[in-house]
């Protein structure tokens, strides 16, 4: 299926990094969850790892412009995400899969994805084709006209991924996309992520360290609202030794980096 390429897509980006944060402070309710985060993310698949409560979901919500930062600076696709206005343009080019998402139970998968395409202001003429393509990419073509309430957990997750990629996002944010997927589906999701990562800035939060090793070009390790480590999967694997708990090099590296005492002079 051919797609017309608009002038906006061919125009050079006016920014060096899709995501840029400096001294970012985020609050969930009154509690400060992320504090003093510095971050630059470009094209590629970035795995976001960390224990429960590290601030991964909160960070992704801020990148999706759902949560307004409480302090510091955050630029998403070259636009400050700290204000109330000026966010419509970046929002058209962001795809977002929340950790859990509500939906109209009577919608079919196709209607759900079409509705999300409309929310993202995909031009009306492109919506049917874009919807079909997104549903095909997550392997739900045979379920496209089934109602959302009839889907299993894994299918629902894939429907969520379909809505996140329907607008061909430049910044794709996936919060725990592998939850509920069976092993074969996880492998297919990794392949999809690698394909998307060629020209998209993908941020994937996950608890599954092996997903990161297989699909990510970069890794962000968060603990207690701070960035503990940013590098490649190989660098994480290299940080671990036989004395650290874990079944694979990257798991041992993960344990080693989280156990390491905070170096003087702040985060790195």
């Amino acid at each position: 299926m051919t797609r017309l390429v608009g002038a906006a897509e061919l125009a050079p980006a006016g920014y060096a990094f899709e995501v840029r944060a400096a001294g970012l402070r985020l609050q969930a309710g009154r509690r400060t969850v992320v504090d003093g985060l510095d971050l630059s993310l470009g094209t590629g698949v970035h795995g976001l790892l960390g224990p429960n409560g590290a601030g991964k979901t909160t960070l992704i919500r801020a990148l999706a412009t759902v949560l307004r930062p409480a302090g510091g600076t955050l630029e998403v696709l070259g636009r400050p995400a700290t204000g109330r206005t000026g966010l419509r343009e970046p929002r058209r080019r962001i795809g977002y899969l929340p950790q859990e998402f509500g939906y109209y139970r009577r919608f079919t998968v196709r209607e759900f994805v079409e509705y999300m395409a409309w929310l993202k202001e995909v031009p009306g003429a492109d919506v049917p084709a874009a919807t079909q393509r997104a549903i095909d990419r997550v392997g739900l073509a045979d379920r496209a006209d089934h109602r959302m309430k009839t889907l299993s957990g894994g299918m629902l997750r894939r429907a969520g991924i379909a809505q996140a990629i329907v607008n061909d996002p430049v910044l794709l944010l996936l919060d725990e996309p592998t939850v509920g997927l069976d092993p074969a589906q996880r492998v297919r999701l990794r392949e999809l992520l690698q394909t998307l990562g060629a020209d998209t800035c993908v941020v994937v939060s996950t608890h599954l360290v092996e997903d990161v090793a297989a699909a990510c070009t970069g890794v962000l390790l968060m603990a207690d609202g701070r960035l503990v480590f940013q590098g490649t999967p190989a660098e994480i694997a290299a940080a671990g030794g036989p004395e650290h708990p874990g079944d694979s090099p990257i798991e041992r590296g993960y344990a080693a980096l989280l156990a390491r005492p905070e170096p003087a002079g702040g985060t790195w």
Partner: peptide, 14 residues
């Protein structure tokens, strides 16, 4: 209010 406030908030439409 819609079914998913996070997705609604992230939408580009007015």
């Amino acid at each position: 209010s819609g079914q998913e406030p996070a997705l609604d908030r992230a939408a580009a439409i007015r």
